[in-house]
């Protein structure tokens, strides 16, 4: 079931989000030459990912202990150059095992 007024909400939220994503990608077709801007854009992805991961990740499971175990396993497996899937899987599994152990205690 869809309420008629829902479509207005959907249009507004999808529209705003799409424009935010599209305008810069479509506007900047030329390669930027400025060294500062290039360096800034080089660092950006790593800074963004770090901000989104720390410290939020350790609280994501609802239990700090399993969150921290997940983080440590992620760091160690990523350090040894495991693939994205492997790291993601090991992170989830280690956190789940921790959670199961905690529930037993």
């Amino acid at each position: 079931m869809i309420r008629p007024e829902f479509f207005l909400y959907l249009l507004v939220m999808a529209g705003v989000t799409y424009l935010i994503r599209t305008i810069p990608l479509v506007l900047f077709k030329k390669k930027i030459k400025n060294v500062f801007v290039l360096s800034f854009l080089h660092y950006m992805p790593y800074a963004v990912l770090s901000v989104m991961t720390f410290p939020t990740m350790i609280y994501a499971t609802g239990s700090i202990i399993s969150g921290i175990v997940g983080l440590i396993v992620a760091l160690v497996s990523a350090y040894f150059n495991r693939s994205l899937v492997t790291v993601a899987l090991l992170t989830c599994i280690s956190a789940y095992i921790t959670q199961v152990v905690i529930n037993l205690i």
């Binding site: 992805p45 989104m52 499971t61 350090y79 993601a88 090991l90 989830c92 199961v100």
Partner: peptide, 23 residues
């Protein structure tokens, strides 16, 4: 709930896997 909660770590694990090799 425990499974859903732990699955939510997948995204973060991936983030770590992208950042660490570059670092």
């Amino acid at each position: 709930a425990d499974i859903v909660n732990c699955l939510s770590l997948a995204i973060y694990g991936m983030f770590v896997a992208i950042v660490v090799p570059e670092v």
